[in-house]
Every structure is written in structure tokens, then in C-alpha cells.
Computed example of a mutant assay.
Amino acid sequence: MIERVLAIETSCDDTSVAIVDRSGFVHSVVAASQDLEHEMYGGIVPEIAARNHSIALIPLIEEAFKKANMSWNDIHGIAVTNRPGLIGALIVGLVTAKSLSQAKHIPFLGINHLEGHLLAPFLKDAQHTPPEDFDYPYVGLAISGGHTSLYHITGLGEYHVLGTTKDDAAGECFDKFAKMAGLGFPGGVKVDQLAKTGNPEAYEFPRSMIHDDTFDMSFSGLKSSGQRMLEQLGPERVKENLPDLCASFQEAIVDVLIAKLDKAAKFYKAKRIILTGGVSANSRLRARAEDLAKRKNLRLVIPPIRYCTDNAAMIGYVGALRMARGETSAIDLGPSPQALASDFK
């Protein structure tokens, strides 16, 4: 019987390992960041990401066992992200999982990274427990550097895509604006920090598709508008007005995200909503979502920041649930830059 799994997440630039059981309890989760390695390039370099995963992964597995005070005797399966993501990065995690599976004679299962984010609100540990009344169905907004989508989630494996960004993801938009403003990479967190002392009404930025009849979103126009604004102001004025610029730009993104989340909740008469993914760590987005939930009498769940960003705990939880019902992967399973057609309805 599958009760506890070792999980591996290497879909992008962060290497993460966790030990999770099928109740959602995280016994340990450890990670290695690559921000410093990619900062000088202004973005993630896939070859560097893969190389660093290969260096960090085995030591992190050993650390996860030590932190949980467990050994391989306590593990019943291995869950590993195999889609979507950077192919080279995925290969490192997948080959490691396959090798360990054969060496330890335990099954492994490839997991969709996005499914992990959608179930991350169920995760719990010694410091955090989700609300007791949190359960299916719920409306979920998954937002990160690579993905921005709305879902109606009705059960394990039952993820209905309502809408998605037609171009740039919200996290990508944050990072590109930060880079153009001279804040470096990754810059989304820096925009959030500066915005706290800025005026969100100081500058006018577009809210594309905010009144559209669909649940779809678009952020490429906002990114272009931000670039034009920075060029018109010039370096000195940009530096003087960075808090106001960041607050105004951030508010445009948050306005669209909250409007679409509200629209989906109304359409499905939802009682529960979630934010998940790296951008759900944004303080302004969290505050606006909490205000929406209060005004509309909705149960809002946002995972702790450690489970918002890419992490192996969410992969382990999905893996434990799916393996408990008999699912495993064949040894010839490959990585994919995209989700499978069968992953979402």
C-alpha cells in the first residue's frame, strides 16, 4: 500500500525534494535556488539549470531523509515532475527517479507540475494546516512565471480549464518589467516590495480583456505599455518614481487576476477559491483576494509561500494520492515541455 513517497521537482531552475504522505503531511521539503547563477543573464538559461540540478539533487535527497529522520525503508514510491517544463531540467529529475526506482525496487510516477500547484492548498506540516472545511469543488487561479490559468477543480484528476493567458504569464510580465526598470532578475519580488510604498494610481496602465466575456487574460500589452512608459520617463525619473511605477504596474496585473477570479466564482457559484503558484506570494494579490473573499463570503485558501513557489511537496502529495489508487509509470516515460491532452478537461 502506498502511504509515503519521495518527491523530486526539477521543472525549471529550483531543485526540490520532499517526503510526503497521502494525507498531505509534509515530513520534509528542501530546495536549492539557482537565482544567483541566472541573474547575470537576466533570465533562466536551460543548460545551466539542468547542470545545477544534476549537482544539487542527490545531496538534497540525503538532506530530505535526514530532516525527516527517515530512510528508504519508510518510502513506498517516488513521484517526479515529468511535465511541463524545461526538457533538460526535467530529464535530470526523471532519470534520477527511474534509477532510484530500479535500485530500491519501488514504483515511480511522473506528475504534472501544474496539478501539483492545484492541490498545494491541501498540504500541511507542523506549522500549517488548511481549513477543515476545505474540499472539492473549488475555483483555482494558478499564476507563475510560465503559467496563468483559471480552473474549476472537482476532484483528483478533474481539472477543467476555464481560461488562460493568451500570451505572457503574469509572473513573466512582473519579471520583464522589473528587468526593464533596472531591478534585476528575478524581479517580481522586488516590484512587490517597492510597490508597498507607492501610489497604485500614479500611472495609467492597460487592463487587457478585463471586461471580456471569457475567462481568458492577456498581459503582453501591459508589458509593452510598461516599456514605453519607462522609455518616456528616462532613467533619472524612473529611479525617482520607482515605487509609484511598481505600484501602478502591479495594480494593473492584480486588477485583471481578481476580476477573472471573481467572474469564475460567480459563474460556478463557488463557495471555495484558491490562489496558487509563485505569483500567489505577491502581497498585494493576497490582500485583494482576501478582500474579495470577505465581500463575497467565499472560503479562500492560499498555501504558505513555501508551497506557492515550485516545490517537491506538492508533487509528492499528488504522487501519493495517485499511486495509492494504483497508478505507476513505465520505465520508458519521457519528459514533456507541455501538459498531456488528458491532464485537463
Rank of each mutant, 00 (worst) to 15 (best):
R295N: 13
H160A: 00
L86G: 08
H105R: 14
G198C: 13
D213A: 11
E47F: 14
E62M: 04
I78S: 07
S329V: 02
A270N: 00
L156G: 00
A289H: 10
Q338G: 09
A341S: 13
A330T: 15
S225Y: 06
G146C: 02
I315C: 00
L100K: 11
I44H: 14
N73C: 07
P59F: 14
K296W: 03
L162K: 02
G234C: 06
L162R: 02
K67W: 04
G234K: 10
F249N: 03
P84E: 11
L230P: 05
L36A: 14
A89M: 06
S280N: 02
P131H: 08
S329E: 05
D216A: 07
V17Y: 07
N311P: 03
G85D: 08
G155T: 06
A281S: 14
P107S: 08
N73V: 08
I273T: 07
L118A: 12
E62P: 02
A79I: 09
L150M: 13
Q193K: 15
L275G: 01
Y41G: 10
A31R: 06
I143R: 05
L94H: 13
R325C: 01
P337Q: 01
I75Q: 08
A330V: 03
M217V: 07
E37Y: 15
G163F: 06
G234E: 08
A7D: 05
D13R: 12
S208D: 10
M1K: 10
F108G: 11
M180A: 06
E132G: 02
I331A: 04
N69H: 15
S280G: 03
R286F: 12
A270T: 01
D310F: 04
S224C: 11
E63P: 09
A170G: 00
S336V: 02
H211K: 15
D213K: 15
Y307H: 09
N311A: 04
G140C: 15
D175V: 05
G145C: 07
T164V: 01
V80W: 06
H38Y: 14
Y151Q: 03
S280R: 01
G155C: 04
H152I: 01
D35V: 15
G234M: 09
A169F: 03
V279R: 12
T328H: 06
Y317S: 01
A31L: 07
S283P: 01
H105M: 10
I58A: 15
L292Y: 07
K269P: 00
G42S: 08
N199M: 10
P235I: 01
S225A: 15
L118T: 12
E37K: 14
I75S: 03
A68V: 12
K266W: 05
K269A: 06
